[in-house]
């Protein structure tokens, strides 16, 4: 990372993160294809919704024919953290036009956020539109292309259940969960493990009483409340 904030520097600094988008995008394409979405719908979801891990949740809920409103609430909940990130980034774009602010917010991702926060250390706490927008555009293009290629690759496979493809989604949640636990420095690993254990029990018991579509939302909200209570009880 250097102190330059031009587009060329942004391209150079974004390249290492591109492999992450390619890997997850391919996996997303394969998973979506396995539950019955074609290439066009996969790419449309990546281009229009553009919500990373929330897209995996959308696909799994589409597969169980959940009501659209439930899927929207789930996507909102899992992406709610973006509010915190965009609130943080917004502070560095106060003097830019509203249009530039909206564009940066529209294409903001976990990775471009992380890259931006990293960049601040090299630029005397400054960011600009050209640098950030270039980072965002590379991520956006890579994500759409990778998810499309993933959907095409998934099609080449005749009996997906024999290859364990339907488990790709579950494996993805396990992976995202693990990566979240080790990456989130705002909550201790101990606390997160306790909350995960409580949530697991909550879901198991909930399966007896509440249809699973509704349970995912009720269980998540309840889990968050219990998480806050445990966090305060330990302090």
């Amino acid at each position: 990372m250097n102190s330059q904030l031009d587009a060329r520097t942004a391209v150079k600094e974004t390249l290492p993160t591109v492999f992450g988008y390619i890997g997850i995008g391919l996996a997303f394409g394969v998973v979506s294809q396995s539950v019955g979405l074609d290439v066009i719908l996969v790419m449309l979801m990546s281009a229009i919704t553009y919500a990373g891990s929330a897209q995996f949740i959308m696909v799994s809920m589409l597969a169980t024919h959940s009501p659209v409103i439930s899927i929207m609430v789930a996507a909102f909940l899992v992406n709610a953290r973006m509010m915190l990130m965009s609130a943080t980034v917004a502070g560095y774009f106060r003097h830019d036009s509203m249009w530039h602010n909206i564009l940066v917010g529209t294409l903001l991702t976990d990775e471009s956020f992380a890259l931006g926060m990293n960049k601040l250390n090299a630029t005397d706490r400054k960011l600009n539109f050209h640098w950030f927008n270039t980072v965002n555009l590379i991520a956006y293009g890579t994500w759409i292309a990778a998810s499309g290629v993933g959907a095409l690759l998934g099609k080449l496979v005749a009996h997906p259940e024999k290859l364990g493809l339907d488990f790709a989604l579950v494996a993805m949640f396990i992976g995202l969960l693990y990566l979240q636990v080790i990456a989130d420095k705002t909550l201790s690993v101990n606390l997160q493990v306790v909350v995960i254990a409580v949530e697991a029990i909550l879901i198991y018991v909930g399966l007896i009483f509440i249809p699973s579509n509704a349970l995912l939302l009720v269980g998540t909200v309840l889990g968050c409340v219990i998480g806050v209570v445990i966090k305060h009880a330990r302090n």
């Binding site: 891990s53 949740i57 799994s60 789930a74 909940l77 899992v78 709610a80 953290r81 509010m83 915190l84 989604l169 579950v170 949640f173 396990i174 995202l176 969960l177 979240q180 636990v181 989130d184 705002t186 909550l187 997160q192 909350v195 995960i196 949530e199 697991a200 879901i203 198991y204 399966l207 007896i208 009483f209 509440i210 249809p211 699973s212 349970l215 995912l216 269980g219 998540t220 889990g223 968050c224 409340v225 998480g227 806050v228 966090k231």
Partner: peptide, 26 residues
């Protein structure tokens, strides 16, 4: 802000555990 900070781990856990069982309400 505190409540939201637990969303990623709780929703991923919920989806994972949900996939490990078949439901029969009651």
């Amino acid at each position: 802000v505190e409540l939201l900070s637990f969303v990623p781990i709780t929703i991923m856990t919920a989806l994972w555990i949900n996939s490990l069982f078949s439901q029969h309400v009651g």
